[in-house]
Write a protein that binds this DNA or RNA. Structure first.
Lengths: 202, 202
DNA sequence: ATAATTACTGACTCATGAGTCAGCAAAAGT
DNA sequence: ACTTTTGCTGACTCATGAGTCAGTAATTAT
């Protein structure tokens, strides 16, 4: 019976701790999460956590950044395929993407940002640059292309890109607050695409 | 020099404390707010707070309920005036209402619910019944009336009422998270009304 | 085998903040 | 005036949880 109390795995620890921390923060929020809990989840002592992350706040920031780059990149990446007409694109890949987000970890990041964002302005800025600005830019580019191709009316350029994502954000909020009151978020998002196409189409 | 250390104002204290608490919660969130701070803001000792509210959580709930009934009632009340055509109503009172909300204390309540709601299910239920359900019901009733009057197409009845409020919620979120990145929320809300009218009109 | 290195542990300190309560002072009663 | 009642105070206790660090055990070097 070789009773190893632990293995040394310097390489994997940071990622494991960050993953455990994300779970914990997602469930209980930042303030209500104890570093001890995170450590327990990661199968590690509290002290080790402090070896890899100087403070609880550092851990928080690392987690957000990690989730953001990992998940959002893969999601936004899929949006760049463009062999389709504007309508096909909106009803296809765009719709799929929008439907996915409210069920993805990005939704949890939104909660954390709403709840604790004011205390971490640099984090908010990071999130804005890497997610929001890129996303809005992509939408704007898409609309411009539609106009150039003659698939959209010229007035389309005046629409704020936030109109495209409003129902997705509403869906996220709804799921976060009223988890037990069901809402057909897919339907909501689809209706908005209908409205937009009706208005944009030549 | 009559040196009164304090005046006894049993009647006003609860409201004053609740108001101070709302300010504090709005600024820092529930967890990060110290009861001592609330007392200081209200010009009162910490002990007195506990005389009127058994625990910090009680105080929190009282504050939410207070804000909700006070403000939302007055806001939703103004929506019941109905001597207008559906389009006039949407472009008039409805639009005004929607534009007001993101700047009102209701926005802060949303933040508090997102951040701490999971720990207070009864509070969420209360908010749903007294704000969300009533609001959605009002919208549904409005659409039905529009159809009866022949001002809206029959398909209007299939639209989820959340479509009417999505840009308002987006505006709230945006202001909460990206306070420094301006967004013309009035414009956003107005565009959505345009989209809806275009789609609903006979 | 033995020594040197270092990833890791867990019991500790210390600051913070929720909740208490004995006593004080302002108003009301006599 | 002076007694009684009670709204109010602020110093206290006590639990919690962030962050530390001396020591331990798993590797690696010799």
């Amino acid at each position: 019976m070789s009773q190893q109390k632990y293995q040394r795995r310097k390489e994997d620890r940071p990622a494991e701790i960050a993953a455990a921390a994300f779970e914990a923060f997602a469930e209980k929020g930042y303030a209500a999460t104890r570093v001890d809990d995170v450590a327990k989840r990661a199968g590690v002592s509290k002290g080790l956590t402090y070896l890899y992350y100087k403070t609880k706040e550092d851990l928080f920031k690392a987690v957000i950044r990690d989730v953001v780059v990992r998940r959002v990149d893969s999601l936004i990446g899929g949006i760049e395929s463009t062999a389709l007409t504007s309508e096909e694109f909106l009803r296809g890949p765009f719709l799929d993407f929008m439907k996915k987000v409210p069920r993805s970890p990005v939704a949890v990041v939104v909660r954390l940002l709403v709840a604790e964002g004011w205390r971490h302005p640099d984090l908010v800025a990071y999130y804005y640059d890497n997610v929001v600005a890129r996303g809005l830019g992509a939408i704007r580019g898409f609309v411009e292309r539609g106009v150039e191709r003659g698939e959209f009316r010229r007035e389309a350029l005046d629409l704020q890109p936030q109109l495209f994502i409003a129902p997705m954000l509403t869906s996220i909020l709804w799921r976060l607050i009223f988890t037990e009151k069901p809402l057909d978020t897919d339907q909501l998002i689809e209706s908005q695409v209908d409205l937009l196409l009706e208005h944009l189409a030549t």
